[in-house]
């Protein structure tokens, strides 16, 4: 595959088809963990890592086990189990080999199992018929797109939360959703953009 194709996948994954702002996936952590920049960064990194690993494993499982046995209908059950197991393994491994990293990521790891962006990406790469290399590039760029959206949101929210001008009934999540709407609008400006 050519360099241009790689760039196209990356730009689409990070910006034009941003997983949060244009695909509406992974909104729960986007709203829940975007109050502080540090935790936004940690969550984004953890999600990217799990997304990459789970997409690879799900890809291999689907093409080398489920398809040859023609039991594709077990895909949802199999994929979600893989994601849950991977998150658990990562939890154990990180605790053992890098306690510092675990300290900053630990809380977020458990939440990733129910992040629909992870399962969504695993399904997407199968439905789009990507090969293994494309799958890996796609997973990383979707993860980076998620991190970007989370970081942008957290920097805005840190300022909003310290502001006094938010009306009472808009405090907290409603104003965060309005901010997300404005961000999504800005990102939709990239929609016609292609290489």
């Amino acid at each position: 595959m050519s360099f241009v194709q790689i760039i196209t996948l990356v730009v689409a994954g990070v910006i034009t088809d941003n997983v949060v702002l244009s695909q509406s996936l992974g909104i729960c952590p986007f709203l829940g963990v975007s109050k502080k920049t540090d935790s936004a960064f940690g969550m984004g990194f953890a999600v990217t890592l799990v997304m990459l690993l789970s997409s690879i494993v799900c890809y291999l499982l689907y093409h080398y086990v489920l398809e040859p046995l023609s039991i594709e209908y077990l895909r949802t059950v199999a994929f979600i189990l893989i994601i849950a197991v991977l998150v658990q393994i990562l939890d154990i491994v990180l605790k053992k080999i890098s306690p510092a990293l675990y300290g900053s990521l630990g809380v977020f790891l458990a939440l990733i199992t129910t992040n629909c962006a992870v399962l969504g990406t695993a399904n997407l790469v199968i439905d789009s018929g990507y090969n293994l290399i494309e799958t890996m590039i796609e997973a990383v760029s979707v993860g980076l797109g998620f991190t970007l959206a989370l970081l942008l949101m957290s920097t805005i929210r840190e300022r909003i939360d310290s502001s006094e001008n938010v009306p009472e009934s808009f405090k907290g999540l409603p104003i965060a959703l309005i901010v997300a709407a404005l961000m999504a609008m800005a990102f939709s400006g990239f929609a016609g953009f292609s290489i």
Binding site: L21, S22, Q23, S24, P167, E168, S169, F170, L173, P174, I175, A176, L177, I178, A180, A181, L182, A184, M185, S188
Partner: peptide
Amino acid sequence: AYFASSAGGFLVFGLVMAAFNKVIS
């Protein structure tokens, strides 16, 4: 057409949630 996009979804959701908060308070 804006309201068919995901940006419109965020906006309507935010406004309805604020209205819900208002009613409850």
